[in-house]
Write a protein that binds this DNA or RNA. Structure first.
Lengths: 152, 152
DNA sequence: TACCCAATTGCGAAGATGTCGCAAATGCCT
DNA sequence: AGGCATTTGCGACATCTTCGCAATTGGGTA
């Protein structure tokens, strides 16, 4: 399970449950290991933005020997499958969540407040960037920094 | 020279030359050291996006003993004065440039291409974020990721 | 069901980037 | 020229992430 999943191969793929994802993992030559299953259960069970360390702690609550590096490797694998995505919320560690939950973020550089935003907000920029630069933006991967209302 | 410069104190401040900046440094209780001067000369002399290591290499070409940590400290100081700004271009180290040159960036997640963009492009998003979220965006600090025309 | 082998894991080391403490050196004011 | 606060060189440390490697394990096959 090492190559990225081409978009066309994802047609009809169902990421709606841990078992479905694990079935996909096997289809791709991967193994349904217990650390993988527990990690997925944690991810399916939250809508928070968790760092690799957070996830390791949650997984280790149920399987203490799972190593942080295993978490990182599984996160990479699941990301290549398109099941999860990671986001950079300003400085600090990356955070991970189910790809289906992806959305944009505004982070206040002063107080650190995070505002989650619907993609519609980026429709205008997406169109302009496409028209003027030929660039297709991904508003999810990196947060937009600035000042929140309270701090500005 | 440890406190940030309040915006009102910047009225009329002239950052247009190394000597002017150094004069400001002194005004604020700092010293016009040679590592500071050389670093500023390097920064004034390029419009590229240089990492701390890049800058250290450039400075060390003229003063071999300047340590990387000195570069970091001087960059912090100059940033607090508002002379320079740093930008995150996707993964990898921060890059630094004169604040007067600041602009937005689009980075292709596939090929790494960087497109520099005028701020006008963000006018719509800036207004929408302000209206709907009370949030004032800083489009310079973090790049917008996505796919360039060639890769999408 | 036992076997086999590639996929995965635990573990520690190492890499990348940035920060810090401290004693020595150095601007700059008088 | 002297005094002293600022700055510097240097190495250690902090944080986040990746990697090498030998041991383990999932799961298809006989």
């Amino acid at each position: 399970m090492s190559k990225p999943l081409a978009p066309r191969d994802q047609v009809g793929v169902d990421f709606s449950s841990v078992d479905n994802v694990l079935a996909l993992v096997r289809e791709r030559g991967g193994r349904a290991t217990s650390s993988r299953r527990i990690l997925l259960e944690v991810l399916f069970d939250t809508d928070a933005h968790l760092s690799a360390e957070d996830l390791a702690a949650a997984v280790q609550a149920r399987a203490p020997d799972v190593h942080l590096s295993t978490i990182y490797r599984n996160l990479d694998d699941l990301q290549r499958l398109g099941v999860i995505a990671h986001t950079h919320l300003g400085h600090g560690p990356s955070t991970y969540q189910l790809a289906s939950l992806a959305h944009a973020h505004f982070i206040c550089e002063e107080c650190g407040a995070m505002i989650e935003a619907p993609d519609e907000l980026f429709a205008g920029l997406a169109r302009t960037a496409k028209d003027k630069l030929g660039f297709t933006i991904d508003p999810h991967h990196f947060a937009i920094l600035g000042r929140c209302g309270a701090c500005s």
